[in-house]
Amino acid sequence: MSEISTQTPEGGTPIAGPDPVYLENPVLDATVRMLVELSAQVWIERERRLALEAVLEQRGLLPREAIESFRPDEAQLAHIKAERGRFIEDVFKELRRIPVRDTQG
């Protein structure tokens, strides 16, 4: 959120900076953010699985054991790894926002 300015152009209330600290220290703030982010990622996976299982069931396409025995090919593996990178970035990007020295928002 680096574009958010602390300037208030005309009167009004001073705006908090891009990374205000609400809890005892920035690490705690980041931990809470990561927890919420992780919850979002878990929900994404659950929603997708629910959709997938419903489609498979509707179409009678796939026995359940086929998912257990699935082995990705190279292209599929690359895609999964890219998705894994995106997942890790979403959850742990907060680590970059912890300053070296403690600050107050």
Binding site: I4, T8, G11, G12, T13, P14, I15, A16, P20
Partner: peptide, 12 residues
Amino acid sequence: DARHNGEPYSQD
């Protein structure tokens, strides 16, 4: 909201 949600004029 004024300080932490970009509503600097709302209090006034």
